[in-house]
Amino acid sequence: MKASLRRMLWISRITFLEAVRQRFFAFLLVLSAAMVLSSVSFRVFDFGHGELKFIADFGFGGMFFFGSVLAVVMTAQLFFSEIDNRTALTLLAKPLSRAEFLLGKFCGAWAVLGVFVVVLAALQGTVLWAREQELLSLADPAAKLAPAFNLEGLLQLVLLQWLRLGVVISIVLAISALARTFLFAVVVGALAVVAGQLQWIAQDAFLRPTDSQLYAAFLWVSTRVIPNLQQFNLADALVLGSTGVDDGAILVVVLSGLAYLLAYLTLGSLIFRRREI
């Protein structure tokens, strides 16, 4: 058990190193950071809490979008670079199980996205807090309405976004384990993310009565297989805690996220076990 953990940690360590050395990671990080910082210039709309909300939507939107791109493309790339360069051949000839290899890849990629989310959230939090102070000092009556920036909410958001990206990584790894080419894995992975964002539509439809058994079955299967990725996006509710989010609701989201993550990792390991290197 300890030996297995050690092997996994080494795989994730090298995976992490490989990922942060890539220009792609640096590029997306800089792009998202630029997006967050550029939101500082949105002063034209001086409408109090509306402005803070706008800044939050814009910045978290960037983090959310580029995070997804990074999770899909980078994960597939990290997987296929080992397969295509045949480094996997050397590694898997060691006393290393396929599951350990895949889990190691997962942890490495997840750690990279952890860095991504934390850096951007810290930046975004600073921007929001600074603007809030500024609005308050203006003593503008509208500013009094501004929902308070909520640090605890920001931490919860970081955790939720990171978990969401973890679910995406596990899906992309399962697809990569099956896919023959990098391109296929990226395209199908991206489709899966889009499907996950739209999953709530199927969920809604499922709740409505229908005559067709087949349609109902299709909805039932798709709402179970595809995780609802939209439910992790509680950005402004959490960070600009005017509405407030119930702790119980967050717990449900976290548990369902973890369940999907584990399910996809298990599936990926089973598929990868049969793969010829």
Partner: peptide, 19 residues
């Protein structure tokens, strides 16, 4: 994996993480 622990392998045209 216990058999592989006692075995070493050099694949043909080997390629390793170049960083």
């Amino acid at each position: 994996s216990s058999a592989r622990r006692r075995t070493g392998f050099l694949p043909e045209a080997p390629y390793f993480h170049k960083f």
